[in-house]
Design a binder for these strands. Structure first.
Lengths: 240, 240
DNA sequence: TAAAAATGTCACTAAATCGTCATATGGCCC
DNA sequence: GGGCCATATGACGATTTAGTGACATTTTTA
């Protein structure tokens, strides 16, 4: 999942510079130079983080910061303040108003990106690898939660580990032996056929639709080779 | 609750300066100038945050940072790096190694305090005397009071700390071992199953409705993994 | 000091998960 | 189509794991 960043800045050349660097690093960027609009966008676009210049039109950055903190919808939105002022007093005021970090112009875009990553690493572990996703299946490893198309999927511990392994290597085919090593552990002795059974349990849980019907099977059986997580169902190949 | 800070720095005068300012602001300070000792102290003292100088004896700051991140017990410990180097490359390297913030000497003690507060405000809201809230459960950490949907909930000390830990990391699953570390303390020896009993007591207190009936259980049991505070009850899954 | 509250363990129960097998199903080659 | 082989499936007992009530002990409070 790409993180979305709201950039509130009215210096056009700086906007370009920062946007370029953020997008190069894989962030989605939403931009505005206006304080009022920033508040609206923060609500509507649901960014994962806000970069906020101190000096912007209509509302000062610090006022925007204060209002973002006050509104329940954005109270927890991470904010990185940006400013030309090097004053210690200003920096402290910014941090005390609720900013998570503070950078003084001129700054290096790379450092900005590094700081943004540091903040996001903390607040959205999901954006940093705690979350896995493939073809509608989402797994939050820290919350130990799996959903398919938004609906919660109930899995036993072994099925959970099995699915995690597949999500970590989507598309790749694993033999039963490899799956036993990776999911059960290298020193455990269980029948290879046992893998089949857990694959079946995993399929049953993941492919169960809301009304009891079957969804597309995302686990592909590769005859005499093993299994893989795969987005192209057999039916689609036939139909095509 | 006072926050405990581990200061890893070998410049004696700087240690004095920072310690003075931190203690004035109400922090407890543990100090060392040695990298190896820093790792030990981080485990044993369970600080809420580490201030880490780049240049210290025995192990470089960045190596300490890396090891702290690697050890499960300290992987989530907030780290503020401190250094004489102003190099952008160094700053970025520090942040990418897992530091949460970075300050360059000479720095203002007041700004350091402000940055520490900003980091802690995020990660340990309870330390700031603030209120915690999740899905109808509200906790006032200073008044030591808990309510659910407005009604007061009566908790024993251990259940209170347990709930506070959950509220600080909503949604996240903790193993019994992690809960013992975080809630009971690293040096206490109690049976892992004791956690179950306190979970039960916490559930009983929190889920008791006004008329004696049961409210939705907000504590989720994750088999073979642990427990988490979670807003999506099982009933909702079934109904969906 | 006595009463009350809180704590940590244990034994037991309840529930879920696991691994295996026997059998059914389905693809593939001749 | 027949035979062969690999996989799918349903059932089942064994095992693992969590929930629960009780209890002795310690700590706090009155």
């Amino acid at each position: 999942m790409r993180a979305k960043i709201l950039l509130v800045e009215d210096d056009a050349s700086l906007v370009e510079l920062v946007t370029y660097n953020l997008e190069k690093e894989g962030f989605d960027v939403v931009r505005t130079g206006d304080g009022e609009e920033a508040l609206t966008l923060a609500e509507e676009e649901k960014p994962d983080l806000v970069i906020l210049d101190w000096m912007i039109a209509n509302l000062s950055g610090i006022e925007v910061c204060r209002r973002l903190r006050r509104a329940p919808a954005t109270a927890n939105l991470p904010i990185v303040m940006l400013t030309a002022r090097g004053d210690e007093a200003d920096r402290i005021r910014g941090l005390e108003t609720g900013a998570d970090d503070y950078m003084t112009k001129p700054f290096s875009p790379r450092e900005l990106v590094a700081r943004i990553r540091a903040v996001l690493r903390r607040l959205r572990p999901a954006l940093q690898g705690g979350a896995l996703e493939f073809a509608g299946i989402a797994m939050d490893t820290t919350a130990h939660r799996v959903t398919r198309d938004g609906r919660t999927v109930q899995l036993g511990p072994t099925e959970f580990r099995l699915l995690r392994h597949f999500l970590e290597h989507p598309g790749r085919v694993f033999s039963r032996e490899q799956l036993l090593d990776a999911v059960w552990g290298r020193d455990v002795y269980v029948e290879q056929r046992t893998v089949d059974v857990h694959i079946r349990r995993l399929r049953k849980a993941v492919n169960a639709g809301p009304g009891g019907e079957e969804l597309a099977d995302l686990i592909r059986t590769v005859r005499s080779a093993g299994y893989s997580l795969d987005a192209t169902p057999v039916a689609a190949q036939v139909a095509a």
